[in-house]
């Protein structure tokens, strides 16, 4: 099973290298090949998650390795769906390396399958962690779109309409991610009350999820009510991505709390 993970990892890496080379040398064929290789990696990754889930007899979301895998898969899935829907390839520039980055983190985690600890045997398991996968993935995609926006502005390579579309798409991804992050926080609160007797315990993971929520709430207010658009908001979303990564990986690595499962 590990071989399947590393195969997906290696093929993602090849896709990123092809993408990078295609962009650097302005070769459309390389870019086209990068996308097909990426689709191959995504298929392998999907297969790995299915095999892992079957072997573990549960959703493969219980520790940092499994969550990182699901997170990378979520980013890849959104990338595939958006590219198919928008029929455009500009999104891949920043999103593909993001998938690889999360896969690198996953590869550094212990990979053994363990039985679910009693605290995780709950109906909320899939809802809470699945929503986290969707929300973090959406924020990474929003950050990737914004990065592409900033590159396009710097190079002057996109017209106003295209820039407006990128700006709007990044907002839609934040809206999607924000809704699911809210589901993460609220389902987590209900679950925490069932497991630990309190809706909120100021556990570092909870607090950082709240901080992430507050950051994106500020973004939404600036955009929806104060009508802020453009470069400043794109920078906002690019800078917010490290906060998402810290909430996902940094808290578990650097801080000890109730969410330290593995």
């Amino acid at each position: 099973m590990k071989a399947l993970f590393f195969a997906a990892f290696a093929v993602y890496a090849v896709a990123v290298i092809l993408q990078f080379s295609g962009t650097a040398f302005k070769r459309d064929k390389l870019l086209g090949a990068a996308w097909y290789v990426f689709l191959g990696a995504f298929a392998l990754h999907t297969l790995f998650l299915i095999v892992r889930g079957v072997a573990a007899k549960r959703l493969p979301l219980s520790n940092q390795f499994e969550f990182a895998n699901a997170f990378a898969w979520g980013v890849a899935l959104m990338l595939v769906v958006m590219r198919a829907r928008l029929r455009t390839d500009w999104l891949t520039v920043a999103a593909m390396p993001a998938v690889l980055l999360v896969m690198v983190y996953a590869a550094l985690q212990p990979m053994e399958i363990h039985d679910l600890m009693p605290a995780l045997r709950s109906a909320w398991f899939g809802v809470h962690i699945g929503s986290a996968v969707l929300s973090y993935s959406a924020f990474v995609i929003a950050g990737s779109i914004s990065l592409r926006y900033l590159i396009a502005v710097r190079k002057g390579s996109a017209d106003e309409r295209a820039l407006g579309q990128m700006d709007y798409l990044s907002y839609r991804m934040v809206a999607f991610g924000f809704l699911f992050l809210t589901v993460v926080l609220l389902s987590g609160a209900i679950w925490a009350e069932q497991a630990w007797s309190a809706f909120w315990t100021w556990d570092p993971k909870e607090v950082w999820a709240l901080i992430t929520w507050l950051i994106y709430a500020v973004y939404l207010h600036l955009r929806l009510r104060m009508k802020k658009r453009g470069t400043a908001m794109a920078w906002f979303l690019v800078i917010a991505v490290p906060v998402v990564f810290f909430t996902f990986a940094g808290v578990n690595t650097l801080m000890h709390g109730l969410h330290t499962y593995g």
Binding site: W202, P204, V207, L214, I215
Partner: peptide, 9 residues
Amino acid sequence: IAACSVAGT
């Protein structure tokens, strides 16, 4: 609130 929360963690 976000800044206080960072300090708190």
